[in-house]
Nucleic acid binder design. Structure first.
Lengths: 199, 199
DNA sequence: GTCGGTTTTGACCTGTTGGTCAAAACAGGA
DNA sequence: TCCTGTTTTGACCAACAGGTCAAAACCGAC
């Protein structure tokens, strides 16, 4: 249905918008900014998306879907500790490979989640509830040390997303733009959760 | 020097601005919004602060000072594990008692720290470098388990600030606006760092 | 090449925003 | 009470932002 030009331009717009929205927030971004970054004129951009809001929504919709995948992959049948550490690793990889998406999400939540509150208390909560039961079962079976499953998940999110959302601070404190904090971060997080959960 | 009226109004403005900036970011906030929240007219507000930028700067300056205090209190002469757990506890209390300040800071960092980059690689880095040496000494003396000091601090910041910055998500996932997540959070974090650092 | 649909653009409109200014209202001490 | 400095305000401005529109440019099938 969509022509080649349409595909190319909508992709360019979403790419540019991700850049702009993730560093300036929704209200802090302008349509002109996005248009320039996408190499289009403002009216031309508005030919592809009816409004600034629509671009933002399109980005969020795409993001929220992908956001849950790593947690979905947490397998009750697997070896508990390595399942959880694997989840941590996947989340950290997402932080490294998609930092703009992480910041887009963070911006949204910090500002009170005006547009994604239903998602949080809907899909997200449902999935977390479900996986929390898995964690509890593992604890009950003595396969991992006792832990509050909800705060376990909060910890994982906080720790992994920190490296994307606060990367400016991480680099400033480490003292060099050039070193890659992720290898050390991965080792550190693996250590943390292993020590926490080892029965 | 300042009259009673001046004191009252500048205080009201800063209080209102903290509310507005922390939930909307700098560009997302308007002077009118702040003025209304402070119970003043816009020109009246601009009689006390020369510009929107000036209000924001005043807030950040006040914040950055207080931000370092809990870390400064980390005492090399104390008992290592309880010093670190104490630091975690202080940071978590700040998250609970000053969530708007935390979000103001988070907004700033996420958006690339345009106005506080010097602080990050200056005062903050200096202090972290210093305290990292303390951590390393504790590790070398076998008083705590081996750990990367920088990533230890990142972990503490990420975990504690998460409860302020992402509190909407925390409450959505926990399922009720009314329960206070902090008691459980504190227990969880104490457990985490104890298990991580116990020699 | 021509023709229909697609894509692009310049000009424009409306509401908002940060900020100014001169004048009015309001202290409160002499 | 009056007088001087402080505080407050309504009216205003220029820049900017989101969005519209009609016309122009462009494309690919015939």
């Amino acid at each position: 249905m969509a022509t080649r030009i349409q595909q190319k331009n909508t992709a360019a717009i979403l790419e540019a918008a991700l850049d702009v929205f993730s560093t300036n927030g929704f209200r802090g971004s302008t349509v002109d900014q996005i248009a320039r970054a996408a190499g289009l004129s403002k009216p031309n951009l508005l030919y592809y998306f009816p409004s600034k809001e629509a671009i933002h929504t399109a980005l969020l919709d795409g993001l929220l879907e992908a956001w849950l995948d790593p947690l979905r992959a947490l397998d009750e049948a697997g070896e508990p500790l390595s399942e959880i550490v694997g989840y941590v690793r996947r989340k950290l990889e997402m932080s490294r490979d998609f930092p703009r998406e992480s910041r887009l999400f963070a911006n949204e939540i910090i500002q009170g989640a005006p547009r994604i509150a239903p998602y949080l208390s809907g899909e997200l909560k449902t999935l977390v509830d479900e996986k929390s039961r898995v964690i509890r079962r593992w604890v009950a079976d003595g396969k991992i040390a006792p832990v509050d499953p909800y705060h376990l998940f909060f910890s994982i999110w906080a720790l992994t997303q920190h490296y994307a959302d606060f990367n400016v601070q991480v680099h400033a404190v480490l003292g060099s733009e050039d070193i890659d904090p992720y290898p050390d971060a991965e080792a550190h997080l693996e250590l943390m959760f292993t020590r926490l959960l080892r029965p």
